[in-house]
Design a protein around this nucleic acid. Structure first.
Lengths: 334, 334
DNA sequence: GAGATTTTTGGCAGCGCTACCATTTTAGTT
DNA sequence: AACTAAAATGGTAGCGCTGCCAAAAATCTC
């Protein structure tokens, strides 16, 4: 196999103009379909573009004009399917409008977030999309100074810097507790992952406890596991919790991944769900609905969040907080 | 809340130079730590940068120099965790080397792939990363003409355009069949998703059938489902298959998502695994190892693929095919 | 201490494009 | 046909940075 390494002089707009026998401006106008030009000119330009294999250079275009049509995502994780879902929702809209998505991953580390946001801004993106409201002072400062739009995703409990799209995790936590109480469960436990890192999970937990308090009840046991959420962590977490706090009749998990782990623990150990123990997750993942007993959970608007976030940015919407709500899935595990 | 909409004149390198009392070149050299400058100059520049809150403009930098330090990913899906995993692997390496990842999603449509690759090239990326070897002629043509590096991911069965990193899906399929045969299963079925779209799954299936033929055996039944893989699709697929082809003793699934669906079907319907029916997946996802009986599967080097792909590009490696292999997980479902 | 090196520095021409403006061409009006 | 309005076009000055080069300053050599 032979690869051509010789410096292929990239075709420029000027060359296209020359080949088409028109001025550079005309080529630019035709290609962006902006301003006026004759059908004849259009044809000659498109013909030359085709013939020379011209690919516009958006780096140059961006520098010359104002907007970069680049949208930066600085997200905590790619392993937690929540974020790919948001990216997916945004991706479609962005693409239709000829925007490009750029991303980096913080691993739930807000210092890293600051570094990454700062690096992103060097590309002069139209907007920066972040998870939630909890950021370092430094992050907020450089973001403000940049003048670019900021969208905080998947959270509405807090103060938005500019735009925010998501739902109230706190209310989701409350709704989960209320549902379990309504079903008659009284000895409730919690299995979660690191709440300091995943502040949205923390808010759900807060909401959950609030609802319990309001009902004159309280958490009968909790197991907080270090690190990110995972099925295995949920499984081990439930095992731990049940050993330490026997007699629970329902457990709330920080999300569906954790809850699935819990479910599998029950399956393996002959714990009847929900007769012996009820399980409640969060996110409403498809897989949770495909297990033998559909998981009781809360369906969150992840794709819709990405979609709306992109739309707001593209339409230059004024600062606002868009609450997309959530939907309780009764399932069969509670 | 008040948002400052006034056109915040972005700080430029020239302003930093003026503030630091040095020339523009010196600022540029200090910031890139490239070329020579005195400690004194360095200090004054960094001080001015800090004071003015200067953020370099990489759009301009890229235009002026050669390389964009942008790596484009054009992937089939974000729902299939395989691709986020690859992105994750690449992301770390890219970030360390001050590269940025840009992506778009084809939804397994090669016409869209061509459009998206073309759009990506407008950003003059250092490399374009694609899934597999199957691309339209048009895609290959514009890629060749662009002169940028191309990495084809997660496949080694075919002809690479430039770099390729992954493993042999065909061999994975063979290994899966050989394992099942070795275990004594004889009436083998297959449940898969759309093979024309996911050509790598198709190659696994081919390899699987080859191994059966070699052993003088043949597939006893198959169910190919339209659309992308999912747990629900696997569940429904296995149900269908068992109705149509009773008496199977093992089923090979196009991937772990599908296999999990199959497992859940068995759980729901009192089919003992593996006594009544053995199940075999592909990818070795964590969740497959967290269900009551760890799923027999093949662990694929997804993160490592992303990592190596990024490294090869950054180190300007010569064209090559890197086979990272795979690992059979015996599990407990076969 | 003069001359030869080496290090540090600033000026400036692009990179490829778009925005703006001035000019030319075409269409419209009476 | 003469004149006006509208449409089409090309020239060119940047966008903010880097790379090159020549000049200036610092260091070394005998």
């Amino acid at each position: 196999m032979v690869i051509d390494f010789k410096q292929r002089t990239t075709v420029t707009l000027a060359e296209v103009a020359a080949a088409a026998g028109v001025g550079e401006s005309t080529v630019s106008r035709v290609l962006r379909n902006h301003g006026s030009f004759s059908p004849k000119a259009r044809e000659r330009v498109l013909d030359a573009v085709e013939r020379l294999g011209y690919v516009p250079n958006r780096i140059a275009g961006t520098l010359a004009s104002a907007g970069s049509r680049l949208v930066a995502f600085v997200i905590p994780s790619l392993t937690n399917i929540v974020f790919p879902d948001v990216l997916r929702g945004a991706g479609g809209v962005l693409e239709e409008n000829h925007y490009q998505a750029v991303f980096s991953v913080t691993d739930y580390d807000s210092e890293r977030e600051e570094t990454l946001v700062s690096a992103m801004l060097a590309w002069r993106p139209t907007a920066v999309m972040l998870a939630g409201f909890e950021h370092t002072e430094g992050t907020l400062k450089i973001l403000r100074a940049s003048g670019c739009r900021v969208v905080e995703l998947l959270d509405t409990d807090g103060t938005a810097a500019d735009l925010a799209v998501g739902f109230s995790n706190r209310q989701a936590g409350r709704a989960s507790a209320e549902f379990l109480l309504r079903r008659g469960y009284r000895r409730l436990g919690y299995v979660g992952h690191d709440l300091d890192l995943d502040t949205r999970a923390g808010k759900r937990f807060t909401g959950f406890c609030e609802a319990l308090n309001l009902a004159g009840s309280r958490l009968a046991g909790r197991e907080i596991r270090a690190g990110a959420s995972s099925v295995e962590s949920g499984r081990a977490g439930l095992k731990q919790l049940l050993e330490r706090a026997p007699g629970l009749d329902a457990v709330y998990f920080s999300n569906d991944d954790m809850a699935l782990g819990g479910y599998f623990h029950c399956l393996s150990n002959g714990i009847a769900v929900p007769a012996d123990l009820a399980l409640f997750g969060h996110n409403g993942l498809d897989i949770g609905q495909a297990i033998p007993q559909p998981l009781a959970s809360i369906r969150t608007p992840r794709v819709a969040t990405g979609k709306l976030a992109a739309e707001l940015v593209i339409n230059e919407a004024p600062p606002q907080v868009a609450d997309l709500g959530f939907e309780l899935i009764e399932g069969a595990t509670a």
